[in-house]
Design a protein around this nucleic acid. Sequence first.
RNA 1: GCCGCCGUAGCUCAGCAGGUAGAGCAGCUGAUUCGUAAUCAGCAGGUCGGGGGUUCAAAUCCCUCCGGCGGCUCCA
Length: 669
Amino acid sequence: MSGEGLSIKTGERFSDALKRHKYKGIAVVAKFNGSLFDLSATAPSEGEFFPVELNSEDGIRILRHSAAHLLANAVIDIFPGALLNAGPATDDGFFYDIDMPPVSSEQLKDIEREMHRISNRDVPIQRTVMTKDELLEKFKNNPYKIEKIMKYVPDGGSSSVYTQGNFSDFCTGPHVPSTGYIRYFSLTSVASALHKKDNGEEKQLVRIYGTAFPDEESLKNYFVMKEEAAKRDHRRIGSEMDLYVFDSENAPGFPLYAPNGALIREILISYMRDLNRQNGWTEVSTPHVFRDTMWKRSGHYAKYRSDMYLFDLAGDGYAIKPMNCPGHILIFRRKIYSYRDLPVKLSEFGTVYRYEKSGEVGGLTRPRCFTIDDGHAFLAMDQVRTEIISILRMFMESFTTLFGDLEISYELSLIDRENPENFLVTYVCRKCGARFEMRASDSELVCPSCGSLEHSVDLSKWDSASDALRSALLHLNLPFRETPGDAAFYGPKISVYLKDAIGRKWQLSTIQLDFFMPSNFDLTYIDSKGNRSPVVMIHRAVFGSLERIIAILIENYSGRLPTWIAPLQVVIIPVTESYLGYAEVLKREMMNAGIRVYLDSSSETLNKKLRQIRKFRPAYICVVGENEVKENTISVRNRADNISTVTLKGFLETIEKEIRTKSINQLVG
RNA sequence: GCCGCCGUAGCUCAGCAGGUAGAGCAGCUGAUUCGUAAUCAGCAGGUCGGGGGUUCAAAUCCCUCCGGCGGCUCCA
């Protein structure tokens, strides 16, 4: 949409109005009174409309949606029996879910060829309005469309069908005027997707992904960007920097940290340990294995048994821990706490093991074992808000330190008040007034004291907890959106998202409120009136897992980590071996200053030594030769490849400051 | 677990209408002593992911298992 509105008369076609105004751009649809209309549509009243350009946000979405139709058209041409489900535009392209036999990559090329053929013929795309009955008749052979028509079109109402040549689809549109508008597209992959029918049944469909752009240049750029993202892949960079290995034969899904990677973990742990201490978190240590009795009580056994590493020994069942919280609970309940002692805040860098299914494991973002910077606060409900504020501050501080000014956003996940049966809520018996907590979806709601089936729901606990979380976010003025129904079954939660240097969104840590575990383990404290009161638990992780935060760091910085985190802070390269003596003096001085330094004493050429060290992404490379020896200086090259000449003293002072302040920027160069 | 693609030297990859393996980088040895991304030469390195089958003959074709990648589902 550009410039000023164009006038249109009642009943005039938008395309005709464009001609009348001698419109020069490439419009795909028209915006009239805030709604989008096909260009072939007529204006319902007199007024002004704005042409929506192909090359605009709305335009690209419409283009991609039309490309999804083009895809469906091509599939039906080649596989007449295929049943279409849904084909929306996505953030970077489109897909269509289709009930058909599996598609090979060869067939994908055939489909793409057919799409180009239809595009070249420039087939007009036409909208037809049909009544619900007509729609049901037209799509009677496609149960997926029938399902949608029944769901979205009211009885006696009508909706639209879009037709291009031999192909029609039930769709509200709008669409580009003809298939010729869709020229720069590509099918990118085939996947399977599950379709949940209304009766709960699941059906596996073929999902074909593609993307489309207004011009060839943008399409090319898209693939260049994809390659850029692939170059940042932490698996690739991590192996170049010698951080970790994945031995898929002997340890599938279990990352093994080499010295450089272990160093990064060490640095992050020590940073978080300080932050924990400053915020009143004490550190505990719990074992990796517990008797299965505990997992049965915690509820993990029932729900996650198939994802746990279990074993039997001498007739007893054991499980390797998939979570740290039960261990912390056992520590908490070793004694009786007074309200004066709360909150009790236990933290641990706890490594957990979860058997992720074969198709789910991958890199550091989804390993089968990972270390959480875990923490559990045990407190009274009226302390929740203050504690959440403190934890949110820890988030902000740590992410600013690690990533600088990247955009962080928050999500508040709440109970679905209309459908509380999937959540752990308090019920009040209408007969005897007894209160009991349970999840209605797990079993029948029977009052445990009188056996009555009459009860009412009490959401006050959920409400005060949700209010505390919301109020903490508001207090800190943090941007957040609320998602009712997304809460964990045992309590509401806050999730944190980070947008990285190339615009990708990562989910980081979560803060979860938990009413379930405290009641399962009967955790109480003595309140000011001397009564036993139930404890509320907060589960929190700031980094989430070390694995994940390391992956994000590497992908965000493309491996060129801030100096305080870089495993290799300085590499010294003598121009030739004759300057090794001077280089060794420098190395010793730097080592004494606590800097992680490596001296390349090989007899290779300077160029070769530079080339070889590059993949390790050192923070600084110091080259020394005749000039430096003579002047008693160092030639320093930083991560951005800027070269400057400094004295050893000046270099040490600056880099020490850079490391001490955990600067994400380099101060030399 | 499901769909698609893939698995050849430490790494990146070639070889695949079937005739029991090849390159570059890395490694080692030697020469070169060099000013900010490719100095030269030589050497060594692989039961072609595992198992089974077809065949006179399998890295190549078929089956199966194990892994990896992209999605789906899941992610306490």
